[in-house]
Design a protein around this nucleic acid. Structure first.
Lengths: 343, 343
DNA sequence: CTGAAAGCGCTTACAG
DNA sequence: CTGAAAGCGCTTACAG
């Protein structure tokens, strides 16, 4: 049970605890030559591992960084998590991870727990509708920040703290423009849940860009941010549009706000005997790595997810300034591929 | 800076710190009615959040669970991580995550740091070649366990601690048998790095099962566990086999030890004008969700990854017994799909 | 049921 | 350069 303690090390080295502490964990003071060596030798022989909890209590900081995502198994979030990990490692912070299953209660709990653990900073990578950050959460964050905690959100509105903003709206608008430039004139949209801002922004960016060209989606349907959400939305969409195999003058071009949904949509249409892109076109969003070799290759928008994660950590750890009003906008890049090719 | 302290709450409620502690965080003792309410009210009004670091120091346990993976952005590991998260949440533990980028030095560092943070348990989800768990790591784990720490590994050999063993070897053997039953007689293998046990087991299971039927792979190549690793290995393989479009009497059936590698392979062959499964067949391993709608659909083996993560946590948290010799074997399931269909 | 006090394992002014 | 001591914020026997 009893792990080796700094006291033990000090005793064996024949110095005070303070000296042992300075040699092992402090940085500045250079002690007498023999002393430092003795202490280090004692620590090694005893297998001393400093107790980070005790250190955290004695210092002001825990070296912990909280990361909250909707679903760590979702490639979108796991890529962000990878970037967070990388940046955390270079900053010598440990990552506390919470995957909330898109449940806002769990999210709130996770925030409380991270605060209880006195994480030095919290990165909230979920996404929700504007202004929807609930009061409890805002209040907790407020106190947390007052006590020196830093908070950075990725892709969501927050009255305070830092923010990394993937430009979902603009990127989707660019996608619409690119598709129009390709010659498309008929569009439809598969959106996400109304409560998730990312999806809403993408939908809005796309639809409003169409509007600027005098176009309107023929249909809009929506579903969960999952393969199955895309699948069932796509069935409804095909029904609404009455598309039948080989009968399209110009294939309708559908924008699914997520690659994963787009994949579900293609699967649904394939079952219906519809061919992409000949009967119906589709574009996604995210450029998920494992999907890059898909056939037909998927028109999509890339977001530098890992970079987004890294930037969030950098914002969270900046000491030169308060987090407030630090906003980094991260542009997306449109990639036209086969799934929206016109005959 | 100064967060609200238990002392503050006690003062405002007019009770001792001990009583406040018992009301708020202790479980048993039911104090006088008014007392408990007063304390809770004070805590709420002050916005008290217990300091988990201090609690950890005073109690014996931190409520932290360390998870170490090779790459959190890899779907294999992120699915395991999801299972770990779920189980951790129900056990009211927090997850400390380390993604090592497949670097064993970083892995070792992560273990040390987790031990320093006095994680109650550590789940090591990497994978390496048999016996390759280095001495330093073994020594650290030894001390950790002596102090009450629990360690569970997923898919790797360890002389002590608990283990969750995906049955890579057997599942791959079953895959070989199933393929032979389908009528295949010509095989080749795309393996992974020799240092990673998972890949080695899969390769061995497959090749040895072939051997039992008197068959031998025509070629074996290998590469990194990535899309690009599969891509370049597949080019070498096609060169070695001199496969040209439309000229195969019986397409060779290739086993790539990973779905991600299989995808890279298909992409490589497509560039060479080879069609799957007519010119060459391929099977993967993992059944990655985003790949399920791939065309051609990929023959593969499913491993219940989330369950593996959950089981690992359950093993790590079992209190009825020491972790030692707790081994859970998790079987895989073969799924035959289009990518290995014979003409 | 409640409180005073010791202790968890460190760090860090403050003296020397 | 080094040490004695206080303090970080809790929990938990031990008394009452």
């Amino acid at each position: 049970m009893a792990a080796v303690t700094l006291q033990d090390v000090a005793a064996r080295a024949g110095v005070s605890q303070a000296t042992a502490s300075r040699v092992l964990n402090g940085s500045s003071r250079v002690p007498g030559v023999g002393v430092a060596d003795r202490v280090r030798a004692a620590a090694r022989e005893l297998g001393y591992v400093p107790n980070a909890q005790a250190q955290a209590l004695a210092r002001a900081s825990t070296g912990l960084l909280g990361l909250i995502v909707h679903d760590i198994a979702d490639p979108y979030f796991s890529s962000i998590a990878r970037g967070v990990q990388t940046a955390a490692r270079t900053a010598r912070k440990q990552v506390l991870l919470a995957s909330t299953d898109r449940d806002f209660d769990i999210e709130r709990e996770s925030v409380s727990t991270f605060i209880a653990h006195r994480a030095d900073a919290i990165v909230l990578a979920g996404s929700r509708q504007s202004g929807d950050l609930d009061r409890d959460l805002e209040a907790e964050f407020g106190r947390y920040r007052a006590n020196g905690g830093r908070v950075v959100v990725i892709g969501q509105p927050l009255a305070f703290g830092g923010a990394v903003e993937p430009e979902n709206y603009f990127a989707s608008a660019e996608l619409a423009d690119a598709l129009i430039a390709e010659g498309h004139t008929q569009f439809a949209v598969i959106g996400g849940p109304g409560s998730i801002r990312t999806g809403v922004d993408r939908r809005n960016g796309f639809v409003e860009a169409l509007g600027r060209r005098g176009l309107t989606p023929l249909v809009e349907v929506s579903g969960e941010f999952t393969r199955d959400g895309g699948y069932s939305a796509a069935r409804r969409l095909a029904g609404a549009l009455q598309i039948s195999p080989g009968a399209q003058a110009e294939p309708v071009c559908v924008f699914a706000v997520t690659d994963v949904m787009a994949i579900g949509a293609i699967a649904a249409w394939r079952e219906l005997g519809l061919s992409v892109p000949d009967d119906i076109g589709i574009a996604g969003f995210d450029d998920i790595p494992t999907l890059r070799d898909y056939t037909p290759s998927l028109t999509t928008v890339v977001l530098p997810l890992e970079e987004i994660g890294r930037r969030a950590v950098e914002l969270a750890l900046r000491t030169d300034t308060d987090c407030d009003d630090l906003r980094e906008r991260i542009p997306g890049r449109v990639i036209l591929r086969d799934s929206t090719r016109l005959p």
